[in-house]
Structure formats: C-alpha cells, structure tokens
C-alpha cells in the first residue's frame, strides 16, 4: 500500500480570488487541475450549452398555447414559413422570412386593424412557450385601454422576425408586433424578443424595426416589457413610423 502514488484531492479548490465573482457573471476563478477546469465547472458549462442546444431544437407547445391564447378574445391563426424543418431554418434564413404557400390562404383580412401580433418560435420556442401568454396577458389590456383595434394573433413556426412583415401586410395591419425566441445564450436559453414594424410589407430590413429584448423573469420582467411596448407601439402609430427614427426619439425621451 505504501507504494501507491499520492492521489490529487478529490475536488480541486477554487482560486483564492473567488470573491471577485461578486463583480461579474463571467466564469472567473474556476480553479484548475493541471490545465483543465475542475469537473464540476466542466459539467456546469456542458449543462448550460445543453439547455441552449435544446432550446434551438425546441418546438411550440401548440395545443396548450392555442388553448391559452383563446382566452384572450382575439381570432387565432396558425402559419408556417417556407423552411420545412430546423436544418433548413438554420441554413436558409431567407426561407424563414417567407410564408409557406398554404399558410397565405389563412391570412385574409376583411378590414384593417391597428396591431397584429405574431408569436414566432425563432431560435427558442422555449421562450414563446414560457413567456408569450403572460406577457400578452399584461400587454393586451394596455393596448385595448388606449382604443386600439387589435387584429388576430398568429402562431408561426420556423419563423424569422421578418416573416411578421408578410403576415402584417396580408392582415392589413398598420403595425405588426412579433414576439420571438431569441438566440439562446449560455445563461439564458429562454429569452424573448419583441420586434415591431410600422406599415409592414415584405422586403423590409432591420432598420425599419424596433426591438425590446431579453424579456424573461431574470431579464426584463413582463410588466416592464408590457409598459415599454405599449408606449412604443402607441408612439409608432401616432407618428406613423418605426425603426431608426423612432429609436432616436425614444432615446431622447429616456435621457
């Protein structure tokens, strides 16, 4: 027995500057064994990446979402983009920005509306599954209170942000709001983004839109997001614009 080599400690110590972790969410003071991070840190990283990967491949919980959205008192539609699966969605962003032919027939408008709202899976259906209904529960009453005429809610699969422009155009909406799952980060696989375009039509690009991002419990909370969106949407409709011009104005107001 006495000839056995000394074993390393079962778990390497954290670095002596671990107190600096209070200043940042970065993965500092991880400690090490040789050139490697301790196993518990390696697994923590893998788990965060696994959550992000699972979010990219997550799907809309359509049955539950339709049931819960039905209680909000607006017509519901379900559509898909031209991207037929996740592989195509990831490699062909252009397909994710166009409606599938069969989806166009669903979107026929008898009259104009002020705001149409799209719920899009984007890069994290998990975000829509978790946050879309609670956010709308706060946002819709605020929009209704200001007398806006709300169009239908549209649940969109394999969808990029710009798909909302085609949807809004077909629905004759003055403004389209797209709630979409953002690209998952290691710390947040379920972050929801809200993009809106005034005068939506196919072919618009990013500078025509505004965005409120990082909507989730540990990010921008529902109530704050709903208040911000409701103000921005009313401003966009009143001034008949969105994009860079509106952003500049909003920045001036908040400074």
């Amino acid at each position: 027995m006495s000839n056995l080599p000394d074993l390393p400690p079962a778990a390497p110590e954290p670095d002596p500057w671990a107190s600096l972790r209070a200043f940042t969410a970065a993965r500092i003071a991880l400690g090490r064994t040789g050139a490697s991070v301790p196993l518990h840190e390696a697994l923590a990283f893998k788990l965060a990446h696994a959550h992000a990967r699972d979010a990219v491949y997550s799907v809309l919980d359509t049955e539950r979402l339709l049931a819960e959205l039905a209680t909000l008192g607006l017509p519901l539609h379900q559509v898909s983009s031209r991207a037929q699966n996740r592989q195509e969605y990831l490699q062909r962003p252009d397909h994710g920005r166009q409606l599938a032919e069969e989806s166009k027939a669903h979107l026929v408008a008898d009259a104009e509306c002020d705001v149409a709202i799209v719920l899009a899976d984007g890069l994290s259906a998990t975000a829509i599954n978790a946050h879309a209904v609670p956010l709308l529960g706060l946002l819709l009453p605020e929009l209704r209170a200001t007398g806006l005429h709300l169009g239908p809610l549209v649940l969109a699969e394999q969808a990029r942000v710009a798909l909302g422009d085609e949807i809004g155009h077909l629905l004759r909406a003055r403004l389209v709001l797209v709630l979409i799952g953002e690209r998952p980060g290691l710390s947040a696989p379920d972050s929801l983004g809200a993009y809106f375009t005034y005068g939506p039509r196919p072919g618009l690009t990013d500078e025509a839109r505004n965005c409120v991002s990082n909507i989730r419990s540990a990010g921008l909370p529902y109530a704050a997001a709903a208040a911000k969106l409701s103000w921005l949407l009313r401003e966009a409709l009143r001034r008949q614009l969105s994009g860079v011009a509106l952003k500049d104005q909003a920045d001036l107001l908040t400074e």
């Binding site: 969410a25 840190e41 690209r183």
Partner: peptide, 14 residues
C-alpha cells in the same frame, strides 16, 4: 473566462 463571453453571447477559447 471559462470560454463563455457573457457580452457577445458566444463561446471561444478559455
């Protein structure tokens, strides 16, 4: 730190 860039949201080398 830990290959995880918390600002740019991507993974690089640690």
């Amino acid at each position: 730190p830990g290959a995880d860039d918390i600002m740019l949201g991507y993974q690089s080398t640690s």
